[in-house]
Structures are given as structure tokens and as C-alpha cells.
């Protein structure tokens, strides 16, 4: 005959407490993702606003300190390079002013003058701080920034506004790995450029399309949104396609000031 134990031991194993709490956290995350993914982003940006400026100051101190230890020779050669580059840029700037005036006249003739508002913003957080290749700028809804506004640096389009908060905005870079953007190659061929990170892009084209180094790449949405120029064209005899690599001519990680174009 079987007798029951006086104190029946429970055979159901209880889940460890950390496992339960993490499971609840994951469920909350998934619910937030589909119902209100940016519910707490405004609060986080509000809290982080002064700390991002602190981070920028720390970064400047570290950069200046590292420059102190550079050798004289490296400083002399860098100085020489920068002087030559400055002369070249001044010449290009003169040409650009003529082109801008001409473009404005043509727009007036074609009656394409939209009410454009350019908002100047400073970058307070760069990609190394963000794991998602985004910038945080110090202008937001209070300054007239709206979602999908294009972001420029020295006349070159960098990305667009992804999310807007009261005092800050999140900028989505077009060169983010995996992102796709419609561009115009050499002012005639519409293609899709895929970002590969760090300001670099790749375009896959049929081999019979003629592409050369130095060809300009424009953003398809805006007539003057220059993104960069072709750096290298890769072709293989066995492949029916060619890979065109282009990049922004500036270092994304050193952008400090941007212009947000708000077209009303």
C-alpha cells in the first residue's frame, strides 16, 4: 500500500526570480515597441541634454590634449597641407557662388520658389556614442524642426530628421549600414545607393552604364542635395554588374554644425 508523505514536496520547480523579472521586462519592451516606441524618448532626451554638452567638452579636452603631444614635424606637414587645401577651397567657393545665383534665377523663372527655412543646429552626440549611427542635434520642435527635414553640412546632404523632441532631434544618417536612399548619378541616372557606414555608400549598376571617378551623386528628393562623388568603380569579368563606391568628402565624426532645411 502506498502512503502519502506527511509533507508533500512540491514537484513544480519555481522559475528563478531574475528570470521572471527579465521576462516581464522583455514583454514590456515588445509591447512598447509596437504600441508606443518613442514614449519615453522625450524624457530621456530632456534628461540627457546637459550631459551631451558635458560629453562634447570632455571630447574637446581629450582631443586638445592629444594634439599637445604631436611632433613638430607632423604639425608642420599638416599646416602645409591645410594651407594648400584652403586655397583650393576658396577657388571652389567663388565658382559655387556663381552657380547658386544662376540656380536662384532659374528657380524664379520656373516659379519654383518654395518657402524654405534653414535652421542652424549643433551636433551634441556623434556615432561613437550612438550604437545606431545617428546624430543628436540641439534644435527641435521649439525651433521649427519637423520630421523628414533634410540635414546638410557645408551644402552636402548628410541625412534627415528621424525623430523630433522639444529641444533636440535625432538625425538618421543616409550612410548608416543597410539603409537605402534614392539618388541621381551624374545628374541623369536614378539609382538606389546603399549605406555601408562611416559616410560610405555603394551602388550596384549594370556594367553597360558608363560611370567614372569624380561623377557627382545627388539626392533624388532635392535638386541641389549633393551627397558626394564617385571614388572607385569595381568591375569583375564574370559579373554582369559593377559596384560603384562613393563617400561624403568630410568626416562624419567631426561634424559640429549642421543646417536643417525645413520646406513649408
Amino acid at each position: 500500500m502506498n502512503y502519502l508523505f506527511k509533507n508533500k514536496k512540491s514537484t513544480i520547480k519555481k522559475l528563478p526570480k531574475p528570470f521572471l523579472l527579465v521576462s516581464i521586462f522583455i514583454v514590456i519592451i515588445i509591447l512598447l515597441n509596437f504600441l508606443a516606441p518613442h514614449a519615453l524618448s522625450e524624457t530621456v532626451h530632456w534628461v540627457g541634454y546637459p550631459f551631451w554638452f558635458l560629453g562634447g567638452s570632455v571630447r574637446d579636452i581629450v582631443y586638445n590634449t592629444s594634439n599637445f603631444f604631436k611632433t613638430k614635424n607632423s604639425l608642420i606637414s599638416e599646416n602645409k597641407f591645410l594651407r594648400e587645401k584652403n586655397t583650393e577651397l576658396k577657388t571652389n567657393l567663388l565658382n559655387q557662388e556663381i552657380i547658386i545665383k544662376e540656380n536662384k534665377k532659374l528657380n524664379e523663372i520656373l516659379n519654383r520658389n518654395k518657402n524654405k527655412n534653414i535652421i542652424l543646429g549643433y551636433v551634441i552626440s556623434w556615432p561613437p556614442s550612438s550604437p545606431y549611427d545617428t546624430l543628436v542635434i540641439d534644435v527641435g520642435a521649439d525651433h521649427g524642426v519637423e520630421k523628414k527635414d533634410k540635414v546638410f553640412f557645408n551644402g552636402l546632404v548628410v541625412g534627415e530628421i528621424y525623430d523630433v523632441f522639444n529641444r533636440t532631434s535625432l538625425v538618421y544618417l543616409f550612410s548608416t549600414s543597410g539603409s537605402k536612399v534614392n539618388v541621381i548619378l551624374n545628374e541623369k541616372t536614378p539609382v538606389i545607393a546603399e549605406g555601408i557606414g562611416g559616410g560610405n555608400f555603394i551602388i550596384k549598376l549594370p556594367k553597360d552604364i558608363d560611370v567614372n571617378s569624380g561623377d557627382k551623386i545627388l539626392l533624388a528628393d532635392t535638386a541641389t542635395g549633393l551627397m558626394g562623388s564617385v571614388e572607385y568603380v569595381e568591375t569583375k569579368p564574370s559579373d554582369a554588374f559593377q559596384n560603384v563606391f562613393f563617400r561624403s568628402p568630410f568626416n562624419i565624426f567631426e561634424i559640429k554644425e549642421v543646417q536643417v532645411l525645413n520646406e513649408k
Binding site: P18, V22, N33, H45, S129, S130, Y132, Y162
Partner: peptide, 26 residues
């Protein structure tokens, strides 16, 4: 919350880091 945008083109998913840290915690 501070930096994320949608990781995938087909599904909008914004909390990759949170999920990764949760799995590592367990």
C-alpha cells in the same frame, strides 16, 4: 530610447540593445 531608430526595413524594432542585455543577464 535616446539613439535608436528602426533596425529592420520590414519590421519596426527599436530595442535591440535592451533585448541583448536581457539575454546576457539571464
Amino acid at each position: 530610447s535616446a539613439y535608436s531608430f528602426s533596425l529592420f526595413s520590414n519590421i519596426n524594432f527599436f530595442f535591440g540593445m535592451s533585448i541583448f542585455v536581457s539575454i546576457f543577464f539571464v
